[in-house]
């Protein structure tokens, strides 16, 4: 069978699971969970250096950006200016051009502000960034992002960190079927079966943070997510049977004694 890799921009990912690196107990746990997940790509945020504590450990000491793809994000940005500033700084840090754009609408729902997101996508693409875009599950908006030159569309399953799973399977299917670029389900995944469902819908990948980091055993959940994504992908490729209303025996009646 042909290798079933995921291509985003110029990056080729063997794993269709992307993991976030926030909310872990410490960097050691973050690194262990990332390893257990088998992910090739991790999201990272950009923040001020703590100048008062010179000995504070840094993420890069635990996750080597030469060995795993860093996907800088704009988490915490509520308008286009903040998001652009953040990603330009990320690019300066080490030449990161593949980025995750996320412009939030309000602090309670953490829903994306799609007007600011569209505006930012356009500018970033013009500046040479490869932009993976966190977005609502509106098929029209998703298509607009693709038209604006996004490298991947990342519709939410449910609100960030809510663990509510996929709330609108139909919309995700429509978005996927309309799209010529990868569709990564981002935000709201609560457990392994949610990730499997996203993949069975035909989505190209899943991004998980809180469901792993806040599980009772994050390392075990990371492994579980890895297998869930693989299972969902294979199930999609294999093609499921058509559901029927009545039973169909697995053992033939012919030759029955």
């Amino acid at each position: 069978m042909k290798k079933d890799n995921l291509k985003i921009g110029k990056s080729i990912l063997k794993s269709r699971l992307i993991v976030g690196t926030g909310k872990y107990k410490n960097f050691k746990q973050t690194a262990d969970a990332v390893k257990a997940s088998g992910a090739d790509m991790v999201t990272v945020a950009v923040r001020r250096v703590n100048i008062l504590d010179k000995k504070k450990p840094v993420l890069m000491d635990y996750l080597n950006p030469k060995k795993i793809i860093y996907l800088p994000n704009t988490a915490g940005c509520f308008n286009s200016e903040e998001a652009l500033r953040t990603l330009r700084l990320a690019r300066e840090m080490g030449g990161w051009k593949l980025v995750k754009l996320e412009v939030l609408g309000d602090k309670k729902t953490l829903y994306p502000n799609m007007i600011e997101t569209l505006k930012s996508t356009k500018i970033l693409v013009k500046e040479g960034f490869k932009v993976m875009v966190y977005c609502s599950d509106d098929p029209i908006i998703a298509k607009k992002l693709e038209d604006h030159g996004a490298s991947a569309i990342m519709p939410l399953a449910s609100p960030i960190g809510s663990g509510r799973g996929i709330k609108n399977k139909l919309n995700l299917s429509i978005i996927k079927n309309n799209s010529k670029i990868p569709v990564i389900v981002d935000a709201g995944i609560g457990t392994a079966s949610d990730a499997t469902i996203a993949m069975e819908l035909g989505c190209d990948g899943v991004l998980v943070n809180t469901a792993i980091a806040k599980a009772k055993n994050p390392i075990l959940m990371a492994k579980s997510m890895k297998h869930a994504v693989i299972a969902g992908r294979k199930s999609f490729l294999a093609g499921r049977i058509k559901p029927q209303n009545y039973g169909s025996p697995s053992s033939t009646f012919e030759g029955l004694i």
């Binding site: 690196t21 999201t43 950009v46 993420l59 890069m60 960190g161 943070n209």
Partner: peptide, 10 residues
């Protein structure tokens, strides 16, 4: 002056 780095994030 603003000095930034990467931290854990989703």
């Amino acid at each position: 002056i603003e000095i930034v780095q990467f931290i854990g994030g989703g």
